[in-house]
Design a binder for these strands. Sequence first.
DNA 1: CGTGAGCCTTGATGAGCATCAAGCGGGCCG
DNA 2: CGGCCCGCTTGATGCTCATCAAGGCTCACG
Lengths: 228, 228
Amino acid sequence: MQTNSALARELSRHYLFCALTHVQQEQLLASAVSRQLAPGERLFSHGERAGQFFMVRSGCVKLYRLSAEGHEKIMRLVRPSQTFAESILFMDVPQYPVHGEGVEAAELIAFDRETFLAILRESFPTCLAVLAQMTRRIQVHWDEIETLALQNSRYRVVHYLLGLLDRTAQGRVSVTLPARKMVIAAHLAVTPETLSRTLRSLSDEGLIESTGDEVTIVDVEKLRRHMH
Amino acid sequence: MQTNSALARELSRHYLFCALTHVQQEQLLASAVSRQLAPGERLFSHGERAGQFFMVRSGCVKLYRLSAEGHEKIMRLVRPSQTFAESILFMDVPQYPVHGEGVEAAELIAFDRETFLAILRESFPTCLAVLAQMTRRIQVHWDEIETLALQNSRYRVVHYLLGLLDRTAQGRVSVTLPARKMVIAAHLAVTPETLSRTLRSLSDEGLIESTGDEVTIVDVEKLRRHMH
DNA sequence: CGTGAGCCTTGATGAGCATCAAGCGGGCCG
DNA sequence: CGGCCCGCTTGATGCTCATCAAGGCTCACG
């Protein structure tokens, strides 16, 4: 892959790569491959042998699983400057644990597993960075398991809306839904119908105003209280 | 904590500690504390400041969260020779992400966070071991999220029963449930009533035979097929 | 400008599971 | 031995959410 300075700067800002030396970065990029992904195009399949992990430069990728009946649960929506599938680095038999597919047209960088592992062996700070990142992911998983097991669909929708906001947001705030509603529904483990009805009932109660992919939260504090 | 050779041997068999030098092991144990835990006794609370992670030597500990209504979801049941709460090692602000409580009377070792981190800095193989372990945990989380989002309670119960078996088990096999049914139910995110009814209906269909905490799977292959 | 496809919404219905309530049975202690 | 507590089971009921079906809106394309 062609090294270019914009990319190098982007890498340096990422937790996984920021502790690498200049030489290590170049080694890594030399083994990396750029990749375009169309909407709906499959990047990898659950169980497929894995030799690369990825970074999103533009667009959006979904990581998901399917039930036997073809129902889809999106485990994660990956956005620009985020990496995914790093966990294949440390498997004895590296296999992608989910399906990966483009949601919007996306531009990716594919990093080589073996190359990164070799570099890791010589960069203890990077090792720690990976550990910290995996810890954060595990936190997210705990939270997701909790909401799936203990909370109803209404809670999940409200929680999702609040999650789109700044932590510091107050009063009346607008957000744009970051994907089609079908996608968001599959992420929240509800049907599109239920998502639609939930947004409607929140509107009817005066908690939000919703038109298309714009949602205005009338009163953030009130909505936050509403969850408990 | 008193160093003793049985304990040292137990440690050496554990993935987290097996790559440590003799000296490192002694450092770690010097800062470790033994701890007894009664059934129902709280070890730590969700959000509590965390300075230690743990190993179970005997008994059973549950890691769980509670909903606002007091419903309990057990995230993990920890058994002898397993460690837990390692993820607090790499948090900026170390806080336990779940409640921890004794299920059966338990004997624990509490390891000091700072001491282990210092040792980690000098043991790259241990670093890799931690990464591999966290990767395995993440796999389990994916699977759990999938079953919660995409599968019904019957599936989860059957899946749990099959998970108690050897991977190689065939034909007619008996297992002893490893905890009270209330506990298993809270682990599977169903009510005790639903667990009871599910086992009954599996019995009625001739797939299992169930008396007390003994469950006999009449035909493992048939039950495995039954799930899909 | 009309047509069709895909996404979203809305309504009617039903399945699955929690809830509430009652009864059973085993183990522990007086 | 008798009584009680607790865990488990079973039944009756209702809520939540998925399913199925239909209609509207938007946008791309002829």
